[in-house]
């Protein structure tokens, strides 16, 4: 079998798996489609089976891929260790120490609380400083109507979030901004995401996006 035909075969398999899964989900989850005929529930259950099996296989593959990802990470940093990359040595030592700690202390996750949570929380807190300083410099390069609008909206929302009775009128504006424009934008965003997901799914099913193939056919 030639290389081109193999690529076509993989695309065909992916297409068929996708179609089977969709049909299985569509028919298996809606026994009402078969009417009130006797045995319709059993038929729906049987039709749902292929989709369920395929989806469970995907979950297993994803779980295994996590293990593969960890192994790949280790291999990469072992390779970097050979190049005397100090940070890779730190990573490998941390990896080993965390495993040792977790095993010997019977599932103690205090390292998570002592290291990872403070670091990630601190990084999230730095976002506050970055955004505040960035917001203060908007008009430095963009002193136009859009810059002013941006700053004005930011100030209204910030003032509206302050728990001060004197700012009650501003809070009303802020609430309106959050409930009308922000909500409208959020809904538009969700519509866009949904449409994008449909398009991406159809492209994958039709073989236009073939991320699963091993090489270009």
């Amino acid at each position: 079998m030639g290389l081109g035909s193999r690529a076509g075969l993989s695309a065909f398999v992916a297409f068929m798996v996708g179609v089977v899964t969709i049909l299985s989900l569509l028919l298996g989850d809606n026994p009402a489609l078969f009417g009130d005929q006797p045995g319709s529930d059993e038929l729906a259950r049987r039709l749902a089976l292929p989709g369920d099996v395929l989806l469970r296989l995907v979950v297993i593959v994803v779980a295994v891929s996590i293990v593969i990802g960890i192994a790949n990470l280790l291999f990469v940093h072992i390779g970097r260790l050979a190049r005397r990359k100090f940070i890779s040595a730190v990573l490998l030592a941390s990896f080993g120490f965390t495993i040792y700690w977790y095993v010997t202390r019977q599932g103690d996750t205090s390292l998570l609380e002592a290291v990872q949570v403070p670091i990630e929380s601190s990084l999230a807190a730095l976002l506050f400083l970055s955004l505040a300083l960035g917001g203060a410099r908007v008009m430095r390069k963009r002193a136009d109507i859009w810059g002013m609008l941006f700053v004005a909206v930011a100030l209204v929302v910030l003032l509206g979030s302050l728990p001060l009775a004197e700012l009650a009128p501003v809070k009303a504006w802020s609430d309106w901004l959050m409930s009308a424009p922000v909500s409208a934008g959020a809904r538009a965003l969700l519509l866009g995401i949904a449409l994008g997901a449909v398009v991406a799914g159809v492209r994958a099913l039709l073989g236009q996006d073939r991320a699963y193939r091993a090489y270009r056919g």
Partner: peptide, 21 residues
């Protein structure tokens, strides 16, 4: 913190807007 950020954004942008004008 929110109050400080609000003041910082307001003062900073007023300063830069005046400089631009």
């Amino acid at each position: 913190g929110t109050l400080a950020a609000t003041l910082l954004i307001a003062v900073g942008n007023v300063f830069y807007a005046l400089a631009a004008l």
